[in-house]
């Protein structure tokens, strides 16, 4: 699946919630696409941004930086951020680094 189709894989939900899939390229420079995608949704007036981690095994430093960028954009727009389907290791990482202070983290159940 190419990048274009992956990033545009955004499900529109009621109440101005947008879901963006993090996937694995979150951990590379190409992950900046996710940030752009999120900013686009925020500009469209989305008030809750859901980043789905169901297809993300691991989050590295680049990934963390990009997610902090998403959090910053959302906070500037007055929107909430939810990280959903996050695996156990990543939940730990987010807590340790303080990322969880800025977004609601839902672990994989």
């Amino acid at each position: 699946m190419d990048l274009e189709t992956q990033t545009s894989r955004v499900q529109r939900m009621e109440d101005k919630t947008a879901v963006v899939f993090a996937d694995d390229y979150l951990n590379k420079l190409t992950g900046e696409k996710i940030e752009r995608e999120c900013r686009l949704r925020l500009n469209e007036g989305c008030t809750e941004l859901v980043v789905n981690f169901s297809r993300t095994e691991i989050v590295n430093s680049i990934g963390v930086s990009i997610l902090l960028g998403v959090i910053d954009s959302a906070s500037n727009a007055g929107a909430n951020v939810v990280f959903s389907d996050v695996n156990e290791n990543t939940v730990e990482l987010f807590e340790m680094l303080g990322v969880s202070k800025h977004a609601l983290v839902n672990s994989k159940s």
């Binding site: 420079l29 430093s61 963390v64 930086s65």
Partner: peptide
């Protein structure tokens, strides 16, 4: 990215 992400 790496610098910012390493220490969040």
């Amino acid at each position: 990215h790496l610098l910012l992400g390493s220490l969040a």
